[in-house]
Write a protein that binds this DNA or RNA. Sequence first.
DNA 1: GAACCGATTTCCT
DNA 2: GGAAATCGGTTCT
Length: 226
Amino acid sequence: MTDLRAILSGPTLDAGRELLGARIVRDDADGVRVARIVEVEAYIGEDDQASHARFGRTPRNTVMYGPPGLAYVYLVYGMHDCLNIVTEPAGRPAALLVRAVEPLDGLDAMRDARARRARDRRRSPADAAAQPGPTRRAVIPDSRLGSGPGLVCVILDLDRSLTGSDLLDPAGSVRLEPRPPAEPAPAVIASPRVGIGYAGEPWTTQPWRLSIRDHPSVSRPRPPSG
DNA sequence: GAACCGATTTCCT
DNA sequence: GGAAATCGGTTCT
């Protein structure tokens, strides 16, 4: 089945498994960029103490209560945008955080976007005060360009203004497309979510991080290869 | 390759 | 007011 709307309206963990291997297509002035989803995390309901919905509906998280297939992009640690895909029927707050992608097409635009980000960072006063030093940075392999939730948004130029747009709209500039039928379903690893120590048990140990087994584009910390 | 650190601003019982 | 669904650089093993 490739009806993504139906898949996203179902249980979030099932939807997460279906999204592994799906494509994010970014279609804008910089051309067409395509990336394959290799890692997601599920945030399910108001009971989930790791979810932004844990305090109930707020101005920021309202879109999580909307229909499946909408984008929810939020800012974390004051600097990184993170892309979520809303799941489950309207009224039930749930979403899948896209933690890592494998670049498939438009890699030059992706590298440009990362270089732009690095330049902007260097403009900050604190960095200007620091000695630039002649340190040469290692070249980032293609497979690692989108290996983290913040990096996914950097290489695809996504930000909070995208929140509320429908990722299944064929005319949208950011689109979600199903895994091609010819491509075999990937082996999935389920492991605990990252960076949610504040949530307490059982939430910190729920295996709601889903990733393609042993895929080089998966973010750190690397899940067990099972 | 792991472990530590600083950046930066939005969000909310 | 305090913490946050992270990243990149540095420093160590």
